[in-house]
């Protein structure tokens, strides 16, 4: 973990809150936590549209896209992820993660996680605390290192 925190992998993450959602405090906490773990963070803030997330990943060369949602609006947007991502020719290796409160009203992770994975996300954290979610991301990266990290010999 120590090497990770020192930013040994120095990976780029695009993050932000999707749709018409203004939960800025959670967004700021996400930014701080990712930075503390050694990622280079591109925080698009609240009220961000799906196209802006993908466009930011292209402009920055980010390896990870981490979308957050608190008002449950993500579901409406997430349905378009596969279709929209397919239009980009350079995002095949982009690691897609989503977290927060991913449904309106009550819902259980057993039903929600597979649904979002089917929408095109590699990692889904429904009502999981921030640090646990970011630990999940690190475990995923260790198991599936992005191609850019393999070629750089990290």
């Amino acid at each position: 973990m120590a090497g990770w925190i020192q930013g040994a992998w120095n990976m780029k993450v695009v993050t932000g809150v999707i749709g018409n959602d203004i939960h800025v405090v959670a967004n700021r906490l996400m930014d701080l936590s990712l930075t503390a773990r050694g990622y280079e963070v591109f925080n698009l803030g609240v009220n961000t549209y799906l196209e802006e997330f993908f466009d930011a990943a292209v402009e920055t060369g980010a390896e990870i896209l981490l979308i957050s949602s608190l008002n449950g609006e993500a579901e409406g947007w997430a349905r378009e992820v596969k279709m929209l991502k397919a239009k980009y020719k350079s995002l095949d290796d982009l690691i897609m993660m989503i977290g927060g409160n991913l449904t309106v009203g009550s819902g259980n992770a057993e039903a929600i996680v597979p649904r979002y994975k089917n929408y095109g996300f590699d990692l889904v954290c429904h009502q999981v605390d921030l640090n646990t979610g970011l630990d999940m991301l690190e475990d995923y990266l260790k198991a599936h290192p992005p191609r850019s990290q393999e070629t750089s010999g990290a």
Partner: peptide
Amino acid sequence: ANGGLSTLIIGTTQSYS
């Protein structure tokens, strides 16, 4: 009076560049 210059922009994304 000359209507201004014309430009064509080549960029990588619609939302940023």
